[in-house]
Design a protein around this nucleic acid. Structure first.
Lengths: 198, 198
DNA sequence: TTGACAATAGTACGACCGTTCGTATTATTT
DNA sequence: AAATAATACGAACGGTCGTACTATTGTCAA
């Protein structure tokens, strides 16, 4: 790992934390450089433009999400455990102090939902990927016989993802201590209703 | 209505649209003045500070939300119709072209969930108000015998609000044409499960 | 119609934005 | 050890930000 790659990684770590609290727009090259004790221009040279910095941050965030949420869930036995693992890990991810201001991708979703361009395209792709992961896990659980054969997996994914989003708002903004219980109850209810009747 | 009050209202209308797409931080006095064909300083004089402008925008947004979502729902007969009305109107509100970029309050929620201060306080208050409205409607529906007596109304509100939030993301960012159907299915499912067994 | 005051415009400010450039320093390769 | 590439720096650019002051215009009751 060359020197450049090391600093680039350090920049992205700090940028991720900053984006988490201030958003992709609030992420500013000057203050980011200050926090890292380096010059604006030196930092800038690593990315070439602010937009490319933003894209790099989003990609780093997605990696972290994959490592923290998706991969551990997919390591579970296929079927129901994977589906539950996804939601459980997602809830834990929202509370993870590694991201001091919550999921940067979710923040960026709302920030950029009316600003077409490469950044929006990237966000949409990431969200679609996540949707596909949930749908795939649910479909697999159907095949395994854990979930009902007539389950509408797209509807299922919509509801599960919505609950994870709502949890963020309840936990991070309203700071309601019951948020976690509500979120867990909700996703478990969602999964229970999707199970085969016995 | 004096001249000043009229321009102030015009400013807030335009500011609301701008906040809807660009967020409360992206709302900028210079561009706002340009769009209204007036000077920065002339506009500025109406509010005294950007923060007060932001607060005024949020209050105007809350009024609009109350007029569009809450009041029409509360005009329905108490009990189940009111609960359903709330969710239906909320979904319609998210799609309303009056707010070209979706609900400004929801956007502000994520923008300010890590920026303590008077604006965050105001947003929290507004969200708590809305939560109370949903909880109140659900509780009333229990009293009317429409919903189960053992219903956890807080859990119910959490799930309902989460679905409305998730709908925004699915509809506005991902532009999935099935979003509306999913959202309606989800809230109707939520309500159906809360109904008394017969 | 005039006088008082509200409403708007004009101008300037310091701070910060993203970006560019030339140059110095440090790594890496030859 | 010499040559070359990678990395970082400081200074400066044109712009925009929010805000402060002063001047001008418009409104409306007496």
């Amino acid at each position: 790992m060359s020197k450049g790659e090391r600093t680039r990684a350090a920049i992205l770590d700090q940028a991720l934390a900053m984006t988490s609290t201030d958003g992709l727009t609030g992420l500013t090259i000057g203050t980011l450089a200050d926090r890292l004790g380096m010059s604006k221009s030196g930092l800038f040279a690593h990315f070439g433009s602010k937009e490319q910095l933003q894209a790099a941050v989003l990609e780093r965030a997605a990696e972290l999400f994959a490592d923290t949420v998706v991969r551990p869930a997919l390591a579970q036995p296929r079927g129901l455990p994977r589906v539950l693992g996804l939601f459980e890990n997602w809830i834990a991810w929202t509370m993870d102090p590694v991201l001091p201001g919550g999921c940067p991708i979710q923040a960026a979703s709302i920030e950029f939902d009316d600003r077409p361009g490469p950044i929006q395209d990237l966000i949409v792709k990431q969200q679609e990927d996540m949707r596909r992961v949930v749908i795939g896990a649910a479909r697999r659980a159907v095949e395994e016989g854990h979930l009902r054969a007539d389950l509408d997996v797209e509807q299922f994914a919509f509801e599960g993802i919505s609950l994870c989003y709502g949890f963020t708002q309840s936990y991070r903004l309203l700071k309601n201590p019951k948020s976690e219980v509500w979120a867990r109850n909700a996703v478990h209810g969602l999964v229970d209703r999707a199970r085969v009747r016995q």
